[in-house]
């Protein structure tokens, strides 16, 4: 049987949803795989939703907003773009970043809407089924996605996303403007760190592990793992469970 991808679209009410309506009024045909969730603004799309969708086995996710400069809420789509890029960077770690896309469609672009949906659907078809769906043996992937979902939802990442435009385009608290490169260096590091910390804390919820164990199962070097453990301990997220021989075993002490 032909592969019928499951695609979710998060559409803003004012431009892209209206554009989708216009495609309808103009009877422009496109593949029937997409299911649209209407939001007031593309800026409402939290990374949490996207990771959740991927975990549920959705094959492709498309976020649509007004064209830059045309947002009904003035700047919501810029915020959407920032969040989108964060998500994309994280998904790069597990080769899933192709499965999400962000597009601008105005209320008068019914044809463009249909084209964007058609192209994305075709593209997802070439990628094939989501790896979550493809095999039952997907717990590693779910684990990674959960770590991403969790980390992108944490305070630090949300602050970075929420402040990026202000700090890079206007001024920070010192009245200085941080260059975009400078900020992104910080951002990239934060993405890796928060992802790894979350993975460690998640894995330690299940059973105690040593730095060595962690390094091998998460494919990290031991030095980094130790740094993360130190940080997580300082935040009261993990602690030493036991010491076997010379090796301390750590466990998560975070309550759900």
């Amino acid at each position: 049987m032909a592969f019928k991808p499951k695609i979710v679209g998060f559409l803003c009410n004012w431009c892209s949803y209206a554009g989708a309506d216009l495609a309808g009024v103009s009877r422009i045909q496109y593949p029937p795989n997409i299911r649209i969730i209407r939001l007031m603004c593309s800026g409402r799309v939290e990374p949490f939703f996207v990771f959740e969708a991927l975990k549920q086995g959705i094959d492709g996710i498309i976020i649509m907003g007004c064209h830059p400069g045309e947002c009904h809420y003035m700047s919501g789509n810029y915020e959407a773009e920032i969040k989108f890029n964060f998500i994309k960077k994280m998904l790069n770690f597990i080769n899933l970043s192709d499965r999400i896309t962000l597009k601008w469609v105005s209320a008068s672009e019914g044809i463009r809407f249909a084209k964007v949906v058609t192209e994305f659907t075709e593209f997802i078809k070439t990628l094939g089924k989501s790896p979550i769906q493809k095999s039952k043996n997907n717990s590693d992937l779910i684990f990674s996605l959960t770590a991403m979902q969790q980390s992108m939802n944490n305070y630090r990442m949300r602050v970075l996303m929420g402040r990026k435009r202000k700090i890079t385009e206007q001024k920070n608290v010192y009245g200085e403007k941080v260059s975009i490169d400078e900020f992104e260096e910080l951002e990239n590091k934060a993405i890796i760190d928060e992802y790894n910390r979350e993975r460690i804390s998640l894995i330690l919820k299940k059973h105690p592990l040593s730095v060595k164990n962690l390094a091998s199962s998460l494919d990290l070097d031991e030095k980094s793992v130790l740094d993360y453990i130190v940080w997580l301990r300082s935040k009261g997220i993990v602690d030493v469970d036991k010491i076997q021989g010379l090796t301390p075993y750590y466990i998560s002490i975070q309550e759900d």
């Binding site: 939001l39 409402r44 799309v45 929420g162």
Partner: peptide, 22 residues
């Protein structure tokens, strides 16, 4: 206007946007 930008960005997840809640 209920766009939900604040809710999507609040680091503490302290803001909800009514009718478009998580």
């Amino acid at each position: 206007k209920g766009c939900g930008l604040c809710a999507a960005s609040c680091p503490e997840k302290a803001i909800i946007v009514k009718h478009f809640e998580k």
